[in-house]
Each structure stands twice: as structure tokens, then as C-alpha cells.
Write a protein that binds this DNA or RNA. Structure first.
Lengths: 168, 168
DNA sequence: TTAAACTTTCAGTAATTATTGAAAATTAAA
DNA sequence: TTTAATTTTCAATAATTACTGAAAGTTTAA
């Protein structure tokens, strides 16, 4: 396989995976492109390589920067902005985990906490089932959250740090 | 808060979380409804409670059955089918992990493995970056996969079993 | 200031994904 | 068989989500 074809395949694969995991396809594709590009590149180049519009490119890059996956670089004497991606996979995984925890997990846990407090007739099966399910799911969510935090801070804990080293 | 309102909130929260994690909203909502319903219920009841069409209800239920999250129950002497959800959160998490691994992770790992093999000029920065990134991401994906498998089989392993007990 | 180089915004449109509803298929009892 | 109860399918449509492109905004240099 040619390098050029391989690049396209990588971009496609990463894009597909992203969209299956709730990150929009273009965003994952731009990220993929930056991951396999040695030097920082401009919006123009991104537009060209992926055949997307300026507007789309611009917004996608901003999103990636907000996610902490991409950074801006200014070249002295030049007006144009250049972009590059952090290529350390551990950082990428951590960054994504951090964002999704904040954006999606935390709000749900908040709601579940509230719902745990709802009172009712403990003889009513509808109430009993509701209460038990919410409690269990709340616990699961809290544990997933705990897992995220653990992974995010794995470096600092000697116990988890050594466990997670297996996965690095 | 009233039980009925709380139920709606739970269904909404679970639906939202589902859609953020690549499971379609209705599917997550039907699942939520079944989770908080003590007895198996019919398609009719699901349609009513969630105000969805028969077609939608039917297809969604089939999907949930395929995901291993819902089961059918036939009442003797009745034609109608009734459905209920497994309420053990550990099973739910495991089942979802199992399916997503199979459907999404495995195909990507296959592609990445191929891309790792692409050859090129080791002096070309474009090639070097491509190769390193693909190799790293492949490793990350393989590790996530390994993590999934470990979690899926945690019960059986003495070591991981005791680690994961912390999260049960 | 003006102008050129560039970035950002967003209304309109396109593409994708989900849902409906009615017709077809299946099942089982009469 | 026929009929009634039920489930399944799928073309049409609705809802959602993503993208475009041009206009407005910003920045810097002359």
C-alpha cells in the first residue's frame, strides 16, 4: 500500500471510530490528519487535504483546541496560524477522558443523585424497582467516574501508577 | 418530586447519556423504561409510555435483545410478547462493553494492524510520523481492547477480580 | 487611515439518522 | 381453510446534525 493511501485510510478509520464514540467525524479526521503530519499546518492545508470548507475547518480546529488535543503555533513574521496535535497517545486518551467526564458523566451523576432522594411507598413495586435501579445505576456511574479520575491521576498514585503501567 | 416525574427524568437522563455514547436515544430510553418497570411489559405499553410508533418500538426492542440487554417472556396461553431488562448493572456494563468491543474496536484494530505494515522511506518525515503515530495508536487501541477483555473476564482472574471488586 | 491578510460567524442548505404508519408476513386458534 | 391477533418490514417523511460560503470582524503593516 502507498503512504498516501494509507494516510487516507488512517484518517477514515479514526474518523469512524470518533463518530461511533460521540466525537464528530470531521473533528476526528482533522485530528487524525494532524497526528500524522510532522509539522504544524495551516487552515488552508487542512481544508485542502480533507476537502472541507473554511468555516468547517475553522470551527473544528477551535473545538479541537477546546478539547485540549490541538495547539496553535505562530511563526515569527507570519500572520497565518499553524496547528499541530499532541502525539502522545497517553495524553490523548487522558484528555478525551477528562473532557467527556466533565461534559457527560458529571451532569448525569448529578441527576441520578437527585433521583436517589425521591421518596415513595416502599410497598409499591413500581417505587421499589425504580429506587433500586436508580441507586444501582448511580453507583455504577459513580464508579465509572472514580475509574476515570483514577486513570487521569494514575501517574501520581504509586499503586494505580504501577497497575496502569501495564497499559502504557 | 413525584415518582412519575422522577421516572421521566430517569428515562431522559439515560437516553441522553446513551446518545452521547453512540447508542441511539430511543434504544436507551426503552432500556431505561424496562429497567424501572418491575414486571415484563408488552410492545403496546412501551409505545404508550414513550409515545413512539409500533415500528420504532419493535425495532428498538429487537436491537436491545441483540445487545443482550433485554429478554422476551411469553406468558402461557397468551399470544403477546412481554419484555424485561436484566437489572444487574455489572451485567449491563459488561454486555455493552462486549458489544462495542466487537462492533467498533475490533474492526479498527484490524485496519491499524494493516497500516502498521505499510513501508516507506525511513528518511521521509511524513513517513516517519505516520508510522510512529499508527504504531502508537495501534498500541493504545490494543491496550484498550486488553482492558475490555480484562474487565469482561475479571471474575475469573484472581488478581484482576480483586482489583475490580473495588468498583463493584 | 486604508488596505491586505487572515479569522470568525451564522443563515441557509445538504447529508445523515431516526421515526412513522400502513401493508405484508407470521402465528395459532376456531 | 378462514380469521383475528400479533409481529415485522420498509418506503416515505420528519428531525437532527453537519457543512458551506459569503459577509462581517480582526489584526497588522504601510
Amino acid at each position: 500500500m502507498e503512504l498516501e493511501e494509507a494516510k487516507l485510510q488512517f484518517i477514515e478509520a479514526w474518523g469512524k471510530l470518533g463518530s461511533e464514540w460521540g466525537i464528530n467525524r470531521t473533528m476526528a479526521q482533522v485530528h487524525a490528519l494532524l497526528l500524522i503530519t510532522p509539522e504544524p499546518i495551516s487552515t488552508e492545508e487542512i481544508m485542502e487535504q480533507l476537502s472541507i470548507s473554511r468555516g468547517n475547518a475553522n470551527m473544528t480546529i477551535r473545538d479541537l483546541i477546546n478539547w485540549g488535543l490541538v495547539e496553535k503555533q505562530l511563526k515569527p513574521g507570519e500572520r497565518k496560524e499553524y496547528f499541530y496535535a499532541d502525539k502522545d497517545t497517553w495524553n490523548i486518551a487522558r484528555q478525551v477522558a477528562r473532557e467527556r467526564r466533565k461534559r457527560e458523566l458529571e451532569p448525569v451523576i448529578k441527576v441520578l443523585n437527585e433521583l436517589t432522594k425521591v421518596e415513595g411507598d416502599s410497598k409499591d413495586p413500581a417505587y421499589k424497582t425504580f429506587h433500586k435501579t436508580v441507586k444501582d445505576i448511580n453507583k455504577l456511574a459513580a464508579n465509572v467516574d472514580k475509574l476515570f479520575v483514577t486513570v487521569l491521576n494514575a501517574e501520581e498514585s504509586w499503586f494505580w501508577g504501577s497497575i496502569f503501567k501495564i497499559f502504557k
